[in-house]
Simulated assay, not measured.
Amino acid sequence: MTNPTVNHRHPEPADGAGEFNRNVIAEFRTRQGEVGGELAGAPLLLLTVVGARSGEPRTTPLVHLTDGGRLVVFASNGGSEQDPVWYRNLVAHPEVTVEVGAERYPALAATVDPAEHEALWARQIAAQPQFAGYRTAARTVPLVALTRV
């Protein structure tokens, strides 16, 4: 089976992404990974997943942490008690597409093992302290490793 997210057209932003994400995605692609505003200088990637129900590709801009040969993203959903839609989608369809800078490649997404979760979370908070506020008592924020295929 082929990965429907690996194509030459750019998928629409994730459902409910809003104008902000659409603008970030457009700027990211126009400027080969660079964005301005409140995300200027942040390690940003675009993650395209297949919708669990729709089967359609959905793209979300996410901050990432480099960990060896993989990238780690955080399903914090801004501190919400619910997992973000993109996370539920990649659990159903772990074959994803990653865009970093001008590069676009297929990757396999996997939730990080609990044994390494805390160390990666601590590294992210050290790099971007605002992430400390995204953790709630209601749930553990899933961390997702993206490994190039």
Rank of each mutant, 00 (worst) to 15 (best):
Thr2Arg: 15
Val6Trp: 14
Asn7Val: 14
His8Phe: 12
Arg9Met: 10
His10Pro: 11
His10Thr: 12
His10Gly: 11
Pro11Met: 11
Glu12Leu: 15
Glu12Asn: 07
Pro13Asp: 03
Ala17Cys: 10
Ala26Gly: 09
Glu27Cys: 05
Thr30Tyr: 09
Arg31Gly: 11
Glu34Gly: 13
Glu34Val: 14
Gly36His: 02
Gly41Asp: 02
Ala42Glu: 15
Pro43Tyr: 05
Leu44Asp: 04
Leu44His: 04
Leu44Val: 10
Leu45Pro: 00
Val50Cys: 03
Ala52Thr: 01
Ser54Leu: 03
Gly55Ile: 04
Gly55Ser: 05
Pro57Tyr: 08
Thr59Leu: 03
Thr60Met: 00
Val63Cys: 03
Val63Asp: 09
His64Val: 09
His64Met: 08
Asp67Met: 08
Asp67Gly: 01
Gly69Asp: 15
Arg70Pro: 03
Leu71Glu: 10
Leu71Cys: 09
Ser76His: 06
Ser76Asn: 02
Asn77Pro: 00
Asn77Ser: 11
Gly78Ser: 00
Gly78Thr: 02
Ser80Cys: 01
Glu81Tyr: 02
Asp83Gln: 08
Asp83Tyr: 06
Asp83Ile: 03
Val85His: 14
Trp86Ala: 01
Tyr87Lys: 05
Arg88Gln: 10
Leu90Arg: 00
Leu90Val: 01
Ala92Ile: 10
Pro94Ile: 11
Val96Asp: 01
Thr97Ser: 07
Val100Ser: 07
Val100Tyr: 06
Val100Met: 11
Glu103His: 07
Arg104Gln: 05
Arg104Ser: 09
Tyr105Arg: 14
Tyr105Leu: 08
Ala107Pro: 00
Leu108Ala: 04
Val112Thr: 00
Asp113Arg: 06
Pro114Phe: 07
Pro114Asn: 08
Pro114Trp: 10
Pro114Leu: 05
Glu116Gln: 13
Glu118Ala: 15
Glu118Cys: 01
Trp121Arg: 12
Trp121Lys: 13
Trp121Gly: 04
Gln124Asp: 04
Gln124Glu: 12
Ala126Asn: 12
Pro129Tyr: 14
Gln130Asn: 09
Phe131His: 13
Ala132Met: 07
Gly133Lys: 12
Gly133Tyr: 07
Tyr134Asn: 12
Thr136Asn: 11
Ala137Phe: 02
Arg139Tyr: 06
Val141Asp: 02
Val141His: 08
Pro142Leu: 05
Leu143Thr: 02
Leu143Phe: 03
Leu146Gly: 04
Thr147Gly: 00
Arg148Cys: 03
